[in-house]
Amino acid sequence: MKSMFKGGIAAVALFAGYAAHADEEANLVINEEIEITVRTDAPAHLENMSTIYSGWVFRSDETQALQMDDFENPGMIFVDDAIEAWNTVEGSKGESCASCHGAPEDMAGVRAVYPKWNDEAEEVRTIAMQVNDCRTEQMGADAWKYDGGDMLNMEALLASVSRGMPVNVAIDGPAQSMWEKGRDLYYTRTGQLDLSCANCHEDNYGNNIRADHLSQGQINGFPTYRLKNAKLNGVQSRFRGCVRDTRAETYPVGSVDFIALELYVASRGNGLSVEGPSVRN
């Protein structure tokens, strides 16, 4: 499929093109207690890379520092909002998230395995889909907009209680065909610029595209607080933007293509720690 050596060359050139002070050896410890794995061996299914890196590694010192402390991390204010929503009774059945799920901390481990196959519904579900299923079926409440503020806040809360745990999404069994669909999408060139995800994020991570320092495009840190728009951003909105930036017809948030892509991209990060809400450029 692809040259076996491209990944190696990209790794060597990891920080060659970047003038600003990015400390490639730095480790991330949050609040002086949560150890985050930001670099580790690539999972077996990745043929073209030997090491995977969190997006945190590619950012400037100042941006990295913002994520080391929950007070400094502007994404955490949205987690606070979500905690309130977690405890708020909503919908016709008079329940809150807490009524069934207990405290948010009890949800540790959930984020690490999403997206995943749901037996009852017979489909691969992202966290957003599962949250909306809980809201509409268990709470009798309205569904939240897929990548809207309420949903992103809740995703940030669910990610935050799993921080430090390794991402571990299943790629076989009933999820396999979706995973393969996502993999094929990842490697297919599209759009006027004729680019696939892999062209930038596998062949050129560590290099600059104009002034952007390309990462491996891992999603272990989502939802992410982007300095660029000073708010939380969801995975599928990011996918949408990336595809649009290659001047291709982009897919809708929540579409089967993006669910497949999210599953595949999540699996490329198997082994990195759940890191969200992260801080990125």
Binding site: A19, D61, E62, A230
Partner: peptide, 12 residues
């Protein structure tokens, strides 16, 4: 201040 700001919207 940073020599290079990662993003002009939020510069520490």
């Amino acid at each position: 201040a940073p020599e290079i700001a990662e993003n002009g919207n939020t510069v520490p």
